[in-house]
Amino acid sequence: MPKKTKIAFLMRKAPHGTIYAYEGLEALLIFCSYEQSIVLVLMDDGVYALKKGQDTSELGTKEFSTTFRVLKDYGVERIIVDKTSLKERSLTKEDLLIDVEVLEAAEIMALMKEQDVILPF
């Protein structure tokens, strides 16, 4: 069996205001069907993508935060959130829609070094 490619999706932008998080998530879902080793890392404003209670009705845009719930079932190996990014936004794990690993920047850096590909959104 060929070696799996290690791919990290890195989400750093707020979920609304630009399309990056949404299209990043779309790409992530497709990648899951290719049976590679996939992790999702959320940093900076990217952490807001997982915040509970999002309501985009007044923006008139699609509310997609609940889609993050299926990622583990789709085969995403790890979902990681940067500790400092959470803290800077006065968020805790309890504010998030799904269970995640909260890691220090140094741990995330070490994880990044192991990856074959990093896709930034």
């Binding site: 490619t5 791919i7 779309e26 790409a27 497709i30 990648f31 069907s33 290719y34 590679q36 074959d116 590909v117 896709l119």
Partner: peptide
């Protein structure tokens, strides 16, 4: 998007 996966 599968083609991007293949490129990776």
């Amino acid at each position: 998007l599968g083609q991007l996966s293949e490129l990776c």
